[in-house]
Simulated scan of single mutants.
Amino acid sequence: MIGYLVSKDQKFYIPSEIVCTDETRVPFRGRLKFRQYIKEKIHKFGIKTFKLCVNGAYTYNMKIYCGTESENDWVLVADKVVLGLMNNLLDSGRILFTDNRYTSVGLARKLATRGTHFVEILRSNRKCNPKNVITASLNRGQIFGMENDDGITVLK
């Protein structure tokens, strides 16, 4: 049902150049196999959804998290989630913003090949990060960065 509603909404709304991915928990206390419990939250029980949001906080696409994904490595699952949410918007020159949960140099490479720019906060322990940038010791206000052969720039 949600897939049907999302596809109908996408027919009538053309998003701007800038889009963003994030996750949300919808409060839910009923019985459901994939309901999540997070002790620290105000609403402790809920359903996790991955969302692609556009200008005006409009949810352009979403996916409900129904339990463990098939991949063991979170980076691969995050790549799948982001690419799935962006499916209709790839190859159109858009700019995607994400938080550090969905970031990796590999995902940036995949999106670059599909004509999508990627702005992210990169976790320092991710694979394929340039060691020189991660270990650089900087003073306040300094910036250090490197660009690889694919045109992906990592800054600190």
Rank of each mutant, 00 (worst) to 15 (best):
residue 1 M to A: 05
residue 1 M to I: 07
residue 1 M to N: 04
residue 3 G to L: 01
residue 5 L to W: 09
residue 6 V to K: 01
residue 7 S to D: 11
residue 7 S to W: 06
residue 8 K to D: 13
residue 10 Q to T: 07
residue 10 Q to S: 00
residue 12 F to R: 09
residue 12 F to C: 13
residue 15 P to E: 03
residue 16 S to I: 10
residue 17 E to P: 03
residue 21 T to H: 09
residue 23 E to D: 15
residue 24 T to E: 01
residue 24 T to D: 06
residue 25 R to L: 13
residue 26 V to S: 10
residue 27 P to H: 10
residue 28 F to I: 02
residue 30 G to L: 02
residue 31 R to I: 00
residue 34 F to Q: 07
residue 35 R to H: 04
residue 36 Q to S: 08
residue 37 Y to A: 07
residue 37 Y to N: 03
residue 38 I to Y: 06
residue 39 K to Q: 11
residue 40 E to V: 06
residue 41 K to Q: 07
residue 41 K to G: 01
residue 41 K to A: 05
residue 41 K to E: 01
residue 43 H to N: 10
residue 45 F to P: 00
residue 46 G to E: 07
residue 49 T to L: 11
residue 50 F to L: 06
residue 53 C to W: 03
residue 56 G to S: 09
residue 57 A to N: 09
residue 57 A to D: 11
residue 58 Y to Q: 10
residue 58 Y to S: 13
residue 60 Y to W: 09
residue 64 I to N: 09
residue 64 I to M: 14
residue 65 Y to A: 09
residue 66 C to M: 06
residue 70 S to K: 11
residue 72 N to I: 05
residue 73 D to A: 06
residue 75 V to C: 07
residue 78 A to S: 12
residue 78 A to E: 06
residue 78 A to F: 05
residue 84 G to D: 11
residue 85 L to G: 00
residue 86 M to G: 01
residue 86 M to L: 14
residue 87 N to H: 07
residue 88 N to R: 12
residue 89 L to K: 12
residue 92 S to H: 11
residue 93 G to A: 10
residue 94 R to C: 07
residue 97 F to D: 00
residue 97 F to C: 04
residue 100 N to C: 12
residue 101 R to E: 01
residue 103 T to E: 09
residue 104 S to I: 02
residue 104 S to E: 10
residue 104 S to G: 15
residue 105 V to T: 06
residue 105 V to L: 01
residue 105 V to I: 13
residue 106 G to K: 13
residue 109 R to Q: 12
residue 117 H to T: 12
residue 118 F to W: 13
residue 118 F to Q: 03
residue 120 E to Y: 00
residue 121 I to V: 14
residue 123 R to S: 14
residue 123 R to M: 13
residue 124 S to M: 12
residue 124 S to R: 14
residue 124 S to C: 08
residue 124 S to H: 04
residue 124 S to G: 14
residue 126 R to P: 03
residue 127 K to M: 08
residue 127 K to G: 10
residue 131 K to H: 14
residue 131 K to S: 14
residue 133 V to C: 11
residue 133 V to P: 03
residue 134 I to Q: 10
residue 134 I to D: 00
residue 137 S to T: 03
residue 138 L to E: 13
residue 139 N to T: 12
residue 139 N to M: 14
residue 142 Q to N: 05
residue 143 I to A: 02
residue 145 G to I: 04
residue 145 G to E: 04
residue 145 G to C: 03
residue 148 N to D: 15
residue 149 D to I: 02
residue 150 D to G: 03
residue 150 D to T: 15
residue 153 T to Y: 13
residue 156 K to L: 14
residue 156 K to I: 02
residue 156 K to C: 15
